[in-house]
Amino acid sequence: MSQPADARAGLAIRQADLIRALTAHGSLPAGFDEARIHAAALSLTRKRSRAAARMWPRLSRAAGAKFGQLFAAYAESAPLPQKGGPLADGRAFARWLHERGELPEAGRLEALAVDLRYSTVGGGLIRRRWPAFKAARDTGARRFILAVRLTWIGEYWLSFPVRGGGHKGPVP
């Protein structure tokens, strides 16, 4: 069947304009009801925020009531990742918080766990195929964490106290 190529090209442009308007990156396309588009944009951001919070329970608990507000600020400047869905969105949010010095410790460890399994590519997250090794300093509990993921075998987390004292025991 012949495809109306012009119609496809025209619709692609109009649909992309609408997505930009809805995700707060673009101006309102002609003819749309501004209040309705605004309401839809708001509801999209809320939905995006809730989805990311579900995939990042420790970060969302640590951020508490501020999560929604911080996420909305992040979402305004960051389009939805193309790969990896809400998990990838939350990873980008964690990076955004980190750059502002606002990433809570629990979020940093959660990001470590995600990074062990996924690598960040331009369009989002893709699952790692090869062994990965990550290290982080947990300043709150004064410990140093080494995490290793081996293909087929599993994941190992090691925690070392730093400067005497600190916390021993299972890593959360």
Binding site: A16, I19, L22, T23, K47, P79, L80, P81, Q82
Partner: peptide
């Protein structure tokens, strides 16, 4: 989605 942009919603 359109033009490489994901909306995250059924539009």
């Amino acid at each position: 989605r359109a033009g490489g942009l994901e909306s995250g919603h059924l539009l």
